[in-house]
Design a protein around this nucleic acid. Structure first.
Lengths: 145, 145
DNA sequence: GTCTGTGCAAAAATTTTGCACCAGT
DNA sequence: ACTGGTGCAAAATTTTTGCACAGAC
């Protein structure tokens, strides 16, 4: 999967938000930095821990409010994997789905154009147009025997 | 989709549970009846409302405990659609995925062997074996133009 | 009679919100 | 300055749990 940092130059989110008429405050800038840095899928509490390490005055409410805002602006995606709380990841252009390691909680990203196509076909057959979708595989590492 | 009641004769769940060494109590029997009757995807509170209509002494805790039990025994499936609480449906033999109408909340079931196969392939390529999976399409009715 | 299941109330976990103050533009 | 954003504490929502009693086997 590797490094995708260059896909999110610092300020990418800032631009999205500014263009939407949203103020760039200190808490928001810090949260945005954390999201841009992370290649993972942290939940609100984890993001809060990371902001707290940088500026302990930032509240959990602000984290939640910012996540909701970013989601509405299309800057991040929210995932609710089985059982757990919402987890977030930035939304670059590239759509992908998730494979969750049920033993470690690790998330592997993947993408299948064939599956995407099939989904479209199915929706059309049922008389619907897809607005969004969610495909999650839950599995464990295969033992190389 | 239509009537699937015959796929769940009364007592189907009872057998599953009895075989698992679980006692068939009055609350459980009532909850099981509700699940067997419903062709829908109620959440815990809705199930509680339905049990309350039959026997108001049944508590919400018992509903939750029973749902968890049934899930563990493989008798029902839990779904967490975007935003909302867990919703449940009985697990017959037939696996299917869900298309959720984002306007009405209605759930349409579908199944695609081709998608299932592709999922297996993808997991294998990534070095995993699938334990479970979740595919949800969120969409709106297409206007017949 | 034994041991699991239940109701109740309290707690836990996650997320949202009212309000007075603060800060970005 | 104006307006939207923030921290805090309290509430809302969903789910779990401790405990004493009830009920299935």
């Amino acid at each position: 999967m590797g490094d995708r940092t260059e896909a999110n130059p610092p300020g990418r989110y800032e631009r999205i938000l500014r263009d939407a008429g949203v103020r760039i405050t200190r808490p928001r800038r810090i949260i945005l930095t954390i999201l841009a840095d992370g290649g993972d899928h942290p939940d609100a509490l984890e993001i809060f821990r990371r902001t707290a390490a940088i500026d302990p005055s930032i509240s959990l409410s602000t984290v939640y409010r910012t996540m909701k805002l970013l989601e509405e602006k299309g800057a991040i995606q929210r995932h609710v994997f089985e059982g757990g709380p919402s987890r977030f990841e930035r939304a670059d252009g590239d759509h992908h789905d998730h494979l969750i390691d049920i033993e470690s909680g690790e998330v592997v990203e993947f993408r299948s154009d064939r599956i995407e196509k099939l989904q479209e076909e199915i929706a059309r057959e049922l008389g619907y147009e897809i607005v969004s979708h969610r495909l999650e595989l839950y599995g464990r590492k295969r033992q190389p025997d």
